[in-house]
């Protein structure tokens, strides 16, 4: 149904953390604005990312010790906090990615099966 496809997606619980980790792992240190812009680009504006969810996610990941924030200056010479992924974060990322794949595969299989029966 095309109309539904255009509606922005809500993120599943816990997936934001994974996406942020992946972004930082792929692109190196990023500030919050960069992260949110990047997510919007990749999702082609399908992802409804509220800043009220991104910031808590960043705090949470920082408190886990998976990312690290450092103050710096942007190209336009604005002050921003740049987050980079830590070693623990990389490990967590691979673990979480694996888990996500298994979970997605399982859900997929279940849905397909459901269809056939």
């Amino acid at each position: 149904m095309p109309s539904e496809e255009k509606e922005p997606l809500q993120l599943l619980q816990g997936t934001l953390d994974l996406i942020v980790l992946r972004t930082l792992s792929a692109l190196g240190a990023q500030h919050a604005y960069q992260i949110s812009t990047r997510l919007q680009q990749v999702s082609q504006n399908h992802l409804n990312l509220n800043q009220g969810t991104l910031y808590p996610a960043l705090v949470r990941l920082e408190q886990y010790g998976w990312i690290k924030g450092a103050w710096g200056r942007t190209e336009s010479n604005r002050e921003a906090k740049f987050y980079s992924i830590t070693k623990a974060g990389e490990q967590a990322l691979s673990k979480e990615t694996l888990r996500w794949r298994r979970m997605a595969g399982l859900v997929d299989r279940l849905l397909v099966e459901d269809f056939q029966s």
Binding site: H31, A32, Q51, Y55, T74, R78, E79, A80, K81
Partner: peptide, 12 residues
């Protein structure tokens, strides 16, 4: 500071 920076970048 972080939010102000964010807003400033958006404004830019």
């Amino acid at each position: 500071r972080e939010i102000n920076g964010h807003l400033a970048l958006l404004e830019d």
